[in-house]
Design a protein around this nucleic acid. Structure first.
Lengths: 207, 207, 207, 207
DNA sequence: CATGAATGAGTATTCATTCAT
DNA sequence: TATGAATGAATACTCATTCAT
């Protein structure tokens, strides 16, 4: 298992490099020196730089999925769980991380292995979200007329869009933008009973 | 003028290369041979590879803005105009183009010049969209309670999210996903009068 | 003569560039833009960059020779004239100018044309100096036993060495070093009558 | 140790290239092929071409200093030791080496790292020479009134000037010129006792 | 398991010079 | 006399990868 440990060390070192310099910007030499191994030795653990990127993407996406699963696993209102997930995604998104994510997306258009990983992740993410929505419907928190699968897609799209905004909206706009997104999300999900009593969302002008 | 023409030729050649190989993947040598000029001659027209990327980004974003402005300029319903813009964005998005866009986003996190271009574009896009929403409100098509600025942000976020989906959702899911987004959008914008008579949107389960 | 004028303009522009960036460091493009002509047009006036360097060296050395000739031409003591020439050379020597001179020397070891120019200049400089020394001997200022030709060489060597010091000695040492050189020079040249009454030169320790 | 050996091999190969083509004239490609290594491998041993120049300068100046120190270390007359050092410097100076030295001087005006190396060398050279002069004074060979520090500067200036002459004086003049310099040097250094019995130096005309 | 020497094609960019107009 | 488009070899340097030890 020593092998596996070292592999993990290298992966985290590589992640630090990728965050610092980007996917193509980080060289294997950088990664090796960050991981304190010799350049040749890297290839004892990984077939190529691409393989490192693949492994890293997979690991990252898996932990992201697990984190989300546990986040919505608790007792609290499903909508609140989703909203707080959106918050966390947006707040935990340093520009470097987002840039890296975008590079991985770009990579997926040219590197089929990465594309496959990304596809798998999206499917699992969607099925988890659909499950969560069904759970919410059973508890009467989510509009029972909402199709869980399609709703899941919409939610994920909104969460990702909110995340993306952190890179492009100016810091001062960010809060407003994210509140808007939360309102859209809430409007989309909330059951009719709750909708009747809804407060004016922030993107409405003064009544 | 001859200078400007050649500059444009080089830009389109460069775009072909970037689409094929990515932002860092395309070399100046590739660009030169695609443009059928000698490697040195490139620098007669552009200061650097970065300058090419900058010019290309700017041109792309400008035409995108103009296209949208003319799309919503006509007589038809504002909501329909926005929906069809979303369609066009989504349908015109070959994976390669999207990947490139993602790379530019990533670039913007590390290259302040690109960041500035992107920021400017986003602002102009938002102000145009807000103007469109106000127009729709005057015509009674758009919910008068909607704050135009925040609404514009939400719309743009949704359009971009729909676009992004084309890279990650499988082809078979795509239509459903996009319909979902359109419904969310319609729900967000439509005036109460129209909302009363709304048809069941596609992301509702069969009643 | 318009041709000749433009040629001169280009030469002075080139000199500015060479001073700024060095002999190999200055590009023909830089020179052209400094001279406000097109890159092609440069070759209407000069066969090559080397030819510019050659012309520039020749012009510079000629004016240097003329300046010296007129400096020692006056009425004052020959030794003082030489000492003040040494001062002027040393003080007028910005690092950039000296560096350029060194580069020309280096060039002369590889470029026969420059070597020839330099050789010619040295010979003329030496013959002028020898003439000056003979003049001083006639006036009883210079040791009559000094061989004018060999003495001229020694003087020139000392003047050049003093000049060279400005690039390498720290600013605080410079005055002392140059005084030393002046003393050596004076000791070498002064007639015995004057030597009998000489003041202790600065490079003697306290008696 | 193998690393250090290879480093040295590369340095000598680089020196051959620099002597042949000059500091800017020699390309890293030339150096690599002279050292029989691949172009990339050079950077395993040196950070940059500049670093090679720096290492080379330092090594050269150090051995020069050591050589001189041992030359004056023996039993013989201090003045003779200095004169023979002058001879060696002058005779060992192929034009190519001198040209290179000049280029390094020029470089020092634009490259602070080279300037620092040069400055250090000059200081150490001066302090060694001053020590030698003091030694000569103790042995009654050198004029006790001479200030060792200033005298050292003068001596070094003369030695360098003599060296410089080899590049510019025609071969036939060279001996005469160097004899002149030796006489100047001897006159500067010799103690009064010896001066009383001095032979007519070569730069005096026949009496 | 580990090193680090070695590769060689590849990188963006520069340059003196030529040529058509 | 003048332009500036065009060249293409050259520049210093980087990189993912291989291999002998």
């Amino acid at each position: 298992m020593k092998h596996e440990n070292k592999r993990q060390e290298i992966l985290t070192a590589a992640m630090r490099c990728f965050l610092r310099s980007g996917l193509k910007g980080a060289s294997t030499a950088q990664i090796c020196s960050e991981a304190k191994i010799s350049p040749g030795h890297l290839y004892h653990y990984f077939e190529s730089k691409e393989a490192i990127i693949g492994a890293l993407s997979e690991a990252y996406l898996q932990t992201a999925a697990e984190r989300f699963r546990s986040a919505v696993g608790g007792d609290r209102s499903v909508i609140n769980a989703i909203l707080s997930e959106m918050d966390m995604q947006a707040k935990g998104s340093q520009p470097a991380k987002l840039a890296l994510m975008y590079e991985v997306f770009a990579e997926s258009a040219r590197n089929p292995e990465v594309a496959k990983i990304l596809r798998t992740y999206d499917l699992s993410r969607r099925s988890v979200m659909a499950e969560v929505l069904r759970h919410g419907q059973r508890r009467g928190e989510i509009d029972p007329k909402l199709d869980p699968e399609a709703g899941a897609t919409a939610v994920i799209g909104l969460v990702d869009a909110a995340k993306a905004m952190t890179l492009r909206a100016s810091r001062s706009d960010l809060k407003k933008v994210q509140d808007t997104f939360k309102s859209v999300l809430t409007g989309l999900l909330r059951s009719p009973t709750q909708k009747a009593t809804k407060s004016t969302p922030p993107f409405r002008s003064r009544p």
